[in-house]
Write a protein that binds this DNA or RNA. Structure first.
Lengths: 216, 216
DNA sequence: AAATATATAGGTAATTATACCTATGTATTA
DNA sequence: TAATACATAGGTATAATTACCTATATATTT
Protein backbone atom coordinates (compact mmCIF):
# COMPACT_ATOMS: atom_id res chain seq x y z
CA UNK A 1 0.00 0.00 0.00
CA UNK A 2 1.48 3.29 -1.15
CA UNK A 3 2.00 5.95 1.48
CA UNK A 4 -0.29 8.91 0.92
CA UNK A 5 1.09 12.40 0.58
CA UNK A 6 0.19 14.28 3.75
CA UNK A 7 -0.83 17.93 3.56
CA UNK A 8 -1.43 20.36 6.39
CA UNK A 9 -3.92 23.16 5.91
CA UNK A 10 -3.47 25.99 8.40
CA UNK A 11 -5.98 28.83 8.33
CA UNK A 12 -8.03 30.45 11.05
CA UNK A 13 -11.07 30.78 8.78
CA UNK A 14 -12.95 27.50 8.76
CA UNK A 15 -14.66 28.68 5.60
CA UNK A 16 -11.31 28.77 3.83
CA UNK A 17 -10.20 25.47 5.36
CA UNK A 18 -13.43 23.91 4.14
CA UNK A 19 -12.94 25.24 0.64
CA UNK A 20 -9.37 23.97 0.49
CA UNK A 21 -10.38 20.62 1.86
CA UNK A 22 -13.00 20.33 -0.84
CA UNK A 23 -10.52 21.11 -3.60
CA UNK A 24 -7.75 18.91 -2.33
CA UNK A 25 -9.87 15.95 -1.32
CA UNK A 26 -10.80 15.37 -4.95
CA UNK A 27 -7.29 13.99 -5.22
CA UNK A 28 -7.49 10.71 -3.34
CA UNK A 29 -3.70 10.52 -3.14
CA UNK A 30 -3.74 13.14 -0.44
CA UNK A 31 -4.21 12.85 3.29
CA UNK A 32 -5.23 16.14 4.78
CA UNK A 33 -4.83 17.47 8.30
CA UNK A 34 -5.92 20.86 9.57
CA UNK A 35 -4.84 23.54 12.02
CA UNK A 36 -6.77 26.64 12.97
CA UNK A 37 -3.80 28.72 14.10
CA UNK A 38 -0.04 28.96 13.69
CA UNK A 39 0.81 27.39 17.02
CA UNK A 40 -1.11 24.23 16.28
CA UNK A 41 0.24 24.22 12.74
CA UNK A 42 3.79 24.07 14.08
CA UNK A 43 2.93 21.33 16.55
CA UNK A 44 1.27 19.26 13.81
CA UNK A 45 4.22 19.78 11.47
CA UNK A 46 6.49 18.45 14.19
CA UNK A 47 4.33 15.50 15.18
CA UNK A 48 2.60 14.51 11.94
CA UNK A 49 5.46 15.40 9.59
CA UNK A 50 3.30 16.35 6.59
CA UNK A 51 4.98 16.65 3.18
CA UNK A 52 3.50 20.04 2.51
CA UNK A 53 2.01 22.76 4.68
CA UNK A 54 -0.32 25.38 3.27
CA UNK A 55 -0.03 28.29 5.67
CA UNK A 56 -2.24 31.30 5.93
CA UNK A 57 0.04 34.20 6.77
CA UNK A 58 -2.46 36.11 8.86
CA UNK A 59 -3.25 33.79 11.75
CA UNK A 60 -3.72 34.23 15.48
CA UNK A 61 -1.25 32.90 18.05
CA UNK A 62 1.53 32.62 15.48
CA UNK A 63 1.60 33.95 11.93
CA UNK A 64 2.28 31.68 8.99
CA UNK A 65 5.55 33.47 8.52
CA UNK A 66 6.62 32.76 12.07
CA UNK A 67 5.73 29.11 11.57
CA UNK A 68 7.88 29.08 8.43
CA UNK A 69 10.80 30.66 10.28
CA UNK A 70 10.69 28.05 13.00
CA UNK A 71 10.29 25.21 10.52
CA UNK A 72 13.31 26.35 8.55
CA UNK A 73 15.32 26.97 11.69
CA UNK A 74 14.65 23.46 12.90
CA UNK A 75 15.59 22.04 9.50
CA UNK A 76 12.34 20.16 9.09
CA UNK A 77 11.86 18.43 5.73
CA UNK A 78 8.67 20.04 4.51
CA UNK A 79 7.67 22.25 1.61
CA UNK A 80 5.75 25.37 2.49
CA UNK A 81 3.02 27.17 0.60
CA UNK A 82 1.85 30.58 1.69
CA UNK A 83 -1.78 31.47 1.16
CA UNK A 84 -2.65 35.07 1.90
CA UNK A 85 -5.07 37.91 1.30
CA UNK A 86 -2.38 40.54 0.98
CA UNK A 87 -0.05 40.94 -1.95
CA UNK A 88 2.60 42.61 0.14
CA UNK A 89 5.91 42.80 -1.65
CA UNK A 90 7.95 42.91 1.55
CA UNK A 91 6.31 39.76 2.84
CA UNK A 92 6.72 38.10 -0.53
CA UNK A 93 10.44 38.79 -0.53
CA UNK A 94 10.79 37.57 3.03
CA UNK A 95 8.96 34.40 2.04
CA UNK A 96 11.28 33.82 -0.90
CA UNK A 97 14.31 34.49 1.28
CA UNK A 98 13.20 31.90 3.77
CA UNK A 99 12.68 29.30 1.05
CA UNK A 100 8.92 29.09 0.68
CA UNK A 101 8.03 27.05 -2.41
CA UNK A 102 4.58 28.36 -3.19
CA UNK A 103 2.85 31.70 -2.78
CA UNK A 104 -0.83 32.00 -3.68
CA UNK A 105 -3.27 34.84 -3.14
CA UNK A 106 -6.68 34.03 -1.77
CA UNK A 107 -8.19 36.21 -4.44
CA UNK A 108 -6.96 33.78 -7.08
CA UNK A 109 -9.09 30.90 -8.33
CA UNK A 110 -9.45 27.62 -6.56
CA UNK A 111 -7.65 25.81 -9.32
CA UNK A 112 -4.52 27.82 -8.51
CA UNK A 113 -4.29 26.11 -5.18
CA UNK A 114 -4.34 22.62 -6.68
CA UNK A 115 -1.91 23.71 -9.40
CA UNK A 116 0.34 25.04 -6.72
CA UNK A 117 0.20 21.87 -4.64
CA UNK A 118 0.94 19.73 -7.71
CA UNK A 119 3.89 21.87 -8.76
CA UNK A 120 5.38 21.90 -5.30
CA UNK A 121 4.89 18.14 -4.97
CA UNK A 122 6.80 17.84 -8.24
CA UNK A 123 9.68 19.77 -6.72
CA UNK A 124 8.93 23.06 -8.41
CA UNK A 125 7.99 26.52 -7.27
CA UNK A 126 4.57 28.02 -7.83
CA UNK A 127 3.98 31.76 -7.54
CA UNK A 128 0.62 33.35 -8.28
CA UNK A 129 0.80 35.09 -11.66
CA UNK A 130 -0.49 38.20 -9.87
CA UNK A 131 2.83 38.32 -8.10
CA UNK A 132 5.03 37.92 -11.15
CA UNK A 133 5.89 41.60 -10.92
CA UNK A 134 7.43 41.04 -7.50
CA UNK A 135 9.40 38.11 -8.83
CA UNK A 136 10.78 40.04 -11.78
CA UNK A 137 11.75 42.98 -9.62
CA UNK A 138 13.40 40.62 -7.18
CA UNK A 139 15.51 39.01 -9.90
CA UNK A 140 16.49 42.37 -11.31
CA UNK A 141 17.67 43.43 -7.91
CA UNK A 142 19.76 40.39 -7.06
CA UNK A 143 21.35 40.58 -10.52
CA UNK A 144 22.61 44.09 -9.95
CA UNK A 145 24.20 45.01 -6.66
CA UNK A 146 21.72 44.30 -3.95
CA UNK A 147 19.40 47.24 -3.46
CA UNK A 148 17.20 45.91 -0.72
CA UNK A 149 13.67 47.12 -0.83
CA UNK A 150 13.63 47.83 2.86
CA UNK A 151 17.09 49.38 2.89
CA UNK A 152 17.50 48.34 6.51
CA UNK A 153 20.98 47.03 5.76
CA UNK A 154 22.17 50.59 5.20
CA UNK A 155 21.50 51.54 8.79
CA UNK A 156 23.87 51.39 11.75
CA UNK A 157 22.95 49.74 15.04
CA UNK A 158 21.99 53.03 16.67
CA UNK A 159 19.93 54.01 13.69
CA UNK A 160 18.04 50.72 13.76
CA UNK A 161 17.42 51.10 17.47
CA UNK A 162 15.99 54.53 16.92
CA UNK A 163 13.97 53.38 13.94
CA UNK A 164 12.32 50.82 16.20
CA UNK A 165 11.35 53.46 18.71
CA UNK A 166 10.11 55.70 15.93
CA UNK A 167 7.88 52.87 14.73
CA UNK A 168 6.24 52.94 18.14
CA UNK A 169 5.34 56.54 17.45
CA UNK A 170 7.66 57.92 20.08
CA UNK A 171 8.72 61.53 19.68
CA UNK A 172 12.40 62.43 19.53
CA UNK A 173 12.07 63.85 23.02
CA UNK A 174 10.74 60.55 24.35
CA UNK A 175 13.38 58.55 22.52
CA UNK A 176 16.10 60.79 23.92
CA UNK A 177 14.88 60.17 27.44
CA UNK A 178 14.54 56.46 26.81
CA UNK A 179 18.12 56.21 25.59
CA UNK A 180 19.58 58.89 27.85
CA UNK A 181 21.00 60.90 24.99
CA UNK A 182 20.42 64.39 23.68
CA UNK A 183 17.35 65.09 21.64
CA UNK A 184 19.65 66.55 19.03
CA UNK A 185 21.37 63.21 18.64
CA UNK A 186 18.04 61.56 18.09
CA UNK A 187 17.01 64.20 15.59
CA UNK A 188 20.27 63.78 13.74
CA UNK A 189 19.88 60.04 13.60
CA UNK A 190 16.36 60.44 12.29
CA UNK A 191 17.54 62.86 9.69
CA UNK A 192 20.42 60.60 8.69
CA UNK A 193 18.10 57.64 8.34
CA UNK A 194 15.87 59.73 6.11
CA UNK A 195 18.73 60.66 3.82
CA UNK A 196 20.16 57.14 3.75
CA UNK A 197 16.82 55.71 2.76
CA UNK A 198 16.02 58.64 0.50
CA UNK A 199 12.90 59.42 2.44
CA UNK A 200 11.41 62.87 2.16
CA UNK A 201 8.20 64.39 3.39
CA UNK A 202 6.49 65.16 6.62
CA UNK A 203 6.06 61.77 8.20
CA UNK A 204 8.10 59.80 5.73
CA UNK A 205 10.21 58.17 8.40
CA UNK A 206 7.30 57.30 10.63
CA UNK A 207 5.45 55.85 7.67
CA UNK A 208 8.48 53.82 6.67
CA UNK A 209 9.13 52.62 10.20
CA UNK A 210 5.58 51.40 10.61
CA UNK A 211 5.55 49.65 7.27
CA UNK A 212 8.81 47.88 7.98
CA UNK A 213 7.87 46.76 11.46
CA UNK A 214 4.23 45.86 10.86
CA UNK A 215 5.19 42.79 8.82
CA UNK A 216 7.74 41.50 11.31
CA UNK B 1 -43.69 19.90 -6.14
CA UNK B 2 -42.64 22.42 -3.53
CA UNK B 3 -40.75 25.44 -4.72
CA UNK B 4 -37.19 25.45 -3.47
CA UNK B 5 -35.79 28.39 -1.54
CA UNK B 6 -33.40 30.21 -3.83
CA UNK B 7 -30.18 31.68 -2.42
CA UNK B 8 -27.65 33.89 -4.12
CA UNK B 9 -24.04 33.71 -3.08
CA UNK B 10 -22.02 36.76 -4.11
CA UNK B 11 -18.29 36.76 -3.42
CA UNK B 12 -15.31 37.45 -5.61
CA UNK B 13 -13.26 34.68 -4.02
CA UNK B 14 -14.12 31.38 -5.62
CA UNK B 15 -12.60 29.68 -2.61
CA UNK B 16 -15.21 31.27 -0.40
CA UNK B 17 -18.01 30.61 -2.86
CA UNK B 18 -16.98 26.99 -2.98
CA UNK B 19 -16.97 26.72 0.80
CA UNK B 20 -20.40 28.30 1.08
CA UNK B 21 -21.79 26.11 -1.67
CA UNK B 22 -20.55 23.07 0.18
CA UNK B 23 -22.20 24.10 3.42
CA UNK B 24 -25.50 25.15 1.94
CA UNK B 25 -25.87 22.31 -0.53
CA UNK B 26 -26.17 19.85 2.35
CA UNK B 27 -29.66 21.29 2.68
CA UNK B 28 -31.50 19.91 -0.32
CA UNK B 29 -34.27 22.46 0.16
CA UNK B 30 -32.04 25.14 -1.25
CA UNK B 31 -31.34 26.17 -4.80
CA UNK B 32 -28.12 28.09 -5.06
CA UNK B 33 -26.96 30.60 -7.62
CA UNK B 34 -23.66 32.47 -7.63
CA UNK B 35 -22.22 35.83 -8.59
CA UNK B 36 -18.57 36.79 -8.60
CA UNK B 37 -19.07 40.53 -8.22
CA UNK B 38 -21.63 43.07 -7.03
CA UNK B 39 -22.83 44.05 -10.47
CA UNK B 40 -23.76 40.50 -11.43
CA UNK B 41 -25.24 39.98 -7.99
CA UNK B 42 -27.66 42.84 -8.56
CA UNK B 43 -28.58 41.59 -12.04
CA UNK B 44 -29.23 38.10 -10.69
CA UNK B 45 -31.30 39.46 -7.82
CA UNK B 46 -33.45 41.31 -10.36
CA UNK B 47 -33.81 38.45 -12.83
CA UNK B 48 -33.74 35.36 -10.63
CA UNK B 49 -35.49 36.87 -7.61
CA UNK B 50 -33.77 34.75 -4.95
CA UNK B 51 -35.26 34.68 -1.45
CA UNK B 52 -31.95 35.47 0.20
CA UNK B 53 -28.70 36.99 -0.98
CA UNK B 54 -25.46 36.41 0.87
CA UNK B 55 -23.31 39.37 -0.08
CA UNK B 56 -19.60 39.80 0.44
CA UNK B 57 -19.11 43.48 1.25
CA UNK B 58 -15.71 43.77 -0.37
CA UNK B 59 -16.33 43.00 -4.02
CA UNK B 60 -15.11 44.49 -7.30
CA UNK B 61 -17.41 46.42 -9.65
CA UNK B 62 -19.94 47.07 -6.89
CA UNK B 63 -19.62 46.47 -3.18
CA UNK B 64 -22.10 44.35 -1.28
CA UNK B 65 -23.26 47.46 0.48
CA UNK B 66 -23.98 49.23 -2.79
CA UNK B 67 -25.93 46.21 -3.94
CA UNK B 68 -27.93 46.34 -0.72
CA UNK B 69 -28.64 50.05 -1.18
CA UNK B 70 -29.96 49.51 -4.69
CA UNK B 71 -32.01 46.50 -3.64
CA UNK B 72 -33.65 48.43 -0.83
CA UNK B 73 -34.17 51.48 -3.02
CA UNK B 74 -35.95 49.38 -5.61
CA UNK B 75 -38.07 47.76 -2.93
CA UNK B 76 -37.17 44.22 -3.95
CA UNK B 77 -38.52 41.48 -1.70
CA UNK B 78 -35.35 39.80 -0.58
CA UNK B 79 -33.54 39.27 2.67
CA UNK B 80 -29.90 40.21 2.74
CA UNK B 81 -27.00 38.67 4.62
CA UNK B 82 -23.64 40.41 4.76
CA UNK B 83 -20.56 38.26 4.87
CA UNK B 84 -17.34 40.16 5.46
CA UNK B 85 -13.75 39.99 6.63
CA UNK B 86 -13.93 43.29 8.44
CA UNK B 87 -15.72 43.91 11.70
CA UNK B 88 -16.16 47.57 10.95
CA UNK B 89 -18.61 49.17 13.33
CA UNK B 90 -19.50 51.93 10.91
CA UNK B 91 -20.32 49.44 8.19
CA UNK B 92 -22.24 47.33 10.66
CA UNK B 93 -24.38 50.27 11.66
CA UNK B 94 -24.95 51.23 8.06
CA UNK B 95 -25.99 47.65 7.35
CA UNK B 96 -28.45 47.66 10.24
CA UNK B 97 -29.83 51.03 9.15
CA UNK B 98 -30.48 49.74 5.66
CA UNK B 99 -32.29 46.70 6.98
CA UNK B 100 -29.83 43.86 6.47
CA UNK B 101 -31.09 40.75 8.26
CA UNK B 102 -27.83 38.89 8.80
CA UNK B 103 -24.25 39.92 9.42
CA UNK B 104 -21.58 37.24 9.62
CA UNK B 105 -17.81 37.52 9.78
CA UNK B 106 -15.75 35.27 7.57
CA UNK B 107 -13.59 34.49 10.55
CA UNK B 108 -16.52 32.77 12.19
CA UNK B 109 -17.21 29.09 11.79
CA UNK B 110 -18.93 27.56 8.83
CA UNK B 111 -21.87 26.52 10.93
CA UNK B 112 -22.58 30.21 11.60
CA UNK B 113 -23.45 30.69 7.99
CA UNK B 114 -26.04 27.94 7.96
CA UNK B 115 -27.39 29.11 11.31
CA UNK B 116 -27.68 32.55 9.84
CA UNK B 117 -29.47 31.39 6.72
CA UNK B 118 -31.91 29.35 8.78
CA UNK B 119 -32.67 32.22 11.14
CA UNK B 120 -33.21 34.65 8.31
CA UNK B 121 -35.40 32.18 6.46
CA UNK B 122 -37.44 31.95 9.67
CA UNK B 123 -37.92 35.71 9.62
CA UNK B 124 -35.36 36.50 12.29
CA UNK B 125 -32.13 38.44 12.43
CA UNK B 126 -28.76 36.78 12.85
CA UNK B 127 -25.71 38.76 13.93
CA UNK B 128 -22.34 37.13 14.56
CA UNK B 129 -21.73 36.89 18.30
CA UNK B 130 -18.41 38.63 17.64
CA UNK B 131 -20.45 41.68 16.74
CA UNK B 132 -22.71 41.62 19.74
CA UNK B 133 -20.72 44.51 21.14
CA UNK B 134 -21.72 46.65 18.19
CA UNK B 135 -25.32 45.65 18.65
CA UNK B 136 -25.34 46.45 22.36
CA UNK B 137 -23.69 49.78 21.78
CA UNK B 138 -26.16 50.53 19.05
CA UNK B 139 -29.06 49.85 21.40
CA UNK B 140 -27.46 51.83 24.19
CA UNK B 141 -27.16 54.75 21.87
CA UNK B 142 -30.75 54.85 20.85
CA UNK B 143 -31.69 54.57 24.53
CA UNK B 144 -29.30 56.45 26.79
CA UNK B 145 -26.12 58.21 25.77
CA UNK B 146 -23.34 55.78 26.52
CA UNK B 147 -19.59 56.07 26.31
CA UNK B 148 -18.19 54.10 23.41
CA UNK B 149 -14.91 52.36 23.85
CA UNK B 150 -13.55 53.72 20.60
CA UNK B 151 -15.39 57.01 20.89
CA UNK B 152 -16.08 56.98 17.16
CA UNK B 153 -19.74 57.65 17.82
CA UNK B 154 -18.87 61.10 19.10
CA UNK B 155 -17.62 62.13 15.71
CA UNK B 156 -19.59 63.77 12.92
CA UNK B 157 -19.54 62.46 9.36
CA UNK B 158 -16.89 64.95 8.27
CA UNK B 159 -14.76 64.15 11.26
CA UNK B 160 -14.92 60.44 10.52
CA UNK B 161 -14.02 61.07 6.90
CA UNK B 162 -11.00 63.06 7.98
CA UNK B 163 -10.05 60.51 10.60
CA UNK B 164 -9.92 57.92 7.86
CA UNK B 165 -7.57 60.03 5.79
CA UNK B 166 -5.45 60.74 8.86
CA UNK B 167 -5.11 57.02 9.41
CA UNK B 168 -3.52 56.82 6.00
CA UNK B 169 -0.89 59.23 7.27
CA UNK B 170 -2.00 62.04 5.04
CA UNK B 171 -1.01 65.54 6.12
CA UNK B 172 -3.67 68.19 6.62
CA UNK B 173 -2.48 69.80 3.42
CA UNK B 174 -3.00 66.59 1.48
CA UNK B 175 -6.39 65.99 3.06
CA UNK B 176 -7.46 69.53 2.21
CA UNK B 177 -6.56 68.99 -1.43
CA UNK B 178 -8.27 65.61 -1.47
CA UNK B 179 -11.51 67.08 -0.13
CA UNK B 180 -11.22 70.46 -1.81
CA UNK B 181 -11.54 72.38 1.42
CA UNK B 182 -9.27 74.75 3.30
CA UNK B 183 -6.37 73.39 5.26
CA UNK B 184 -7.70 75.35 8.20
CA UNK B 185 -10.94 73.42 8.10
CA UNK B 186 -9.00 70.21 8.17
CA UNK B 187 -6.85 71.42 11.03
CA UNK B 188 -9.92 72.46 12.96
CA UNK B 189 -11.57 69.11 12.40
CA UNK B 190 -8.42 67.36 13.59
CA UNK B 191 -8.28 69.54 16.64
CA UNK B 192 -11.94 69.02 17.37
CA UNK B 193 -11.57 65.27 17.06
CA UNK B 194 -8.68 65.43 19.53
CA UNK B 195 -10.71 67.29 22.09
CA UNK B 196 -13.80 65.13 21.59
CA UNK B 197 -11.77 62.00 22.14
CA UNK B 198 -9.67 63.61 24.83
CA UNK B 199 -6.50 62.96 22.91
CA UNK B 200 -3.46 65.02 23.72
CA UNK B 201 0.12 64.87 22.58
CA UNK B 202 2.10 65.19 19.44
CA UNK B 203 0.82 62.37 17.30
CA UNK B 204 -2.06 61.35 19.48
CA UNK B 205 -4.59 61.58 16.69
CA UNK B 206 -2.46 59.70 14.20
CA UNK B 207 -1.81 57.00 16.76
CA UNK B 208 -5.50 56.72 17.54
CA UNK B 209 -6.50 56.69 13.89
CA UNK B 210 -4.10 53.90 13.10
CA UNK B 211 -5.14 51.84 16.09
CA UNK B 212 -8.80 52.18 15.27
CA UNK B 213 -8.40 51.32 11.63
CA UNK B 214 -5.83 48.56 11.94
CA UNK B 215 -8.22 46.27 13.83
CA UNK B 216 -11.01 46.61 11.31
C1' DA C 1 49.95 57.25 10.87
C1' DA C 2 46.12 58.57 8.08
C1' DA C 3 41.58 57.90 6.53
C1' DT C 4 36.98 56.46 7.46
C1' DA C 5 32.79 55.37 9.96
C1' DT C 6 30.07 56.15 13.90
C1' DA C 7 27.82 58.27 18.03
C1' DT C 8 27.43 62.21 20.03
C1' DA C 9 25.71 67.27 20.25
C1' DG C 10 24.70 72.02 18.70
C1' DG C 11 22.64 75.67 15.17
C1' DT C 12 19.08 77.26 11.91
C1' DA C 13 15.07 77.17 8.98
C1' DA C 14 10.72 75.42 6.88
C1' DT C 15 6.76 72.62 7.40
C1' DT C 16 3.40 70.30 10.27
C1' DA C 17 0.39 69.04 14.23
C1' DT C 18 -1.83 70.21 18.25
C1' DA C 19 -4.28 73.73 21.17
C1' DC C 20 -6.46 77.46 21.92
C1' DC C 21 -9.49 81.54 19.93
C1' DT C 22 -13.34 83.80 16.83
C1' DA C 23 -16.83 83.82 13.17
C1' DT C 24 -20.30 82.87 9.39
C1' DG C 25 -23.85 80.20 6.91
C1' DT C 26 -26.91 76.27 7.10
C1' DA C 27 -29.76 72.88 8.97
C1' DT C 28 -32.13 70.83 12.62
C1' DT C 29 -34.44 70.99 17.05
C1' DA C 30 -36.82 72.76 21.07
C1' DT D 1 -38.57 82.12 16.92
C1' DA D 2 -34.62 80.84 19.50
C1' DA D 3 -31.21 77.59 20.39
C1' DT D 4 -28.12 74.15 18.96
C1' DA D 5 -25.10 71.42 16.03
C1' DC D 6 -22.19 71.35 12.15
C1' DA D 7 -19.00 72.55 8.23
C1' DT D 8 -16.45 75.95 6.91
C1' DA D 9 -12.35 79.27 7.46
C1' DG D 10 -9.14 82.46 9.72
C1' DG D 11 -5.66 83.87 13.76
C1' DT D 12 -2.05 82.81 17.05
C1' DA D 13 1.08 80.02 19.70
C1' DT D 14 3.91 75.99 20.94
C1' DA D 15 6.10 71.78 20.01
C1' DA D 16 7.72 68.35 16.67
C1' DT D 17 9.71 66.67 12.30
C1' DT D 18 12.47 67.14 8.47
C1' DA D 19 16.54 69.25 6.20
C1' DC D 20 20.36 71.36 5.99
C1' DC D 21 25.01 72.83 8.49
C1' DT D 22 29.34 72.13 11.80
C1' DA D 23 32.09 69.70 15.25
C1' DT D 24 34.35 66.37 18.57
C1' DA D 25 35.65 61.83 20.45
C1' DT D 26 36.22 57.02 19.55
C1' DA D 27 36.93 52.95 17.02
C1' DT D 28 38.11 50.55 12.88
C1' DT D 29 40.44 50.01 8.60
C1' DT D 30 43.95 50.88 5.21
Amino acid sequence: MKKKTKILIADDHSLIRNGLLQVLESNSELEIIEAENGKNALLLIQSEKPDIAILDIEMPEMSGFEVAEKVKYQGLAIDLIFLTMLNDETMFNKAMDIGVKGYVLKENTVSEISNCVEKVLGGNYYISPSLSGFLIRRNDNSASSATHKSGLHLLTASEKKILNLVSEMMTSQEIAQELNISIKTVQNHRSNICSKLELSGTHALLKYAMEVTKTL
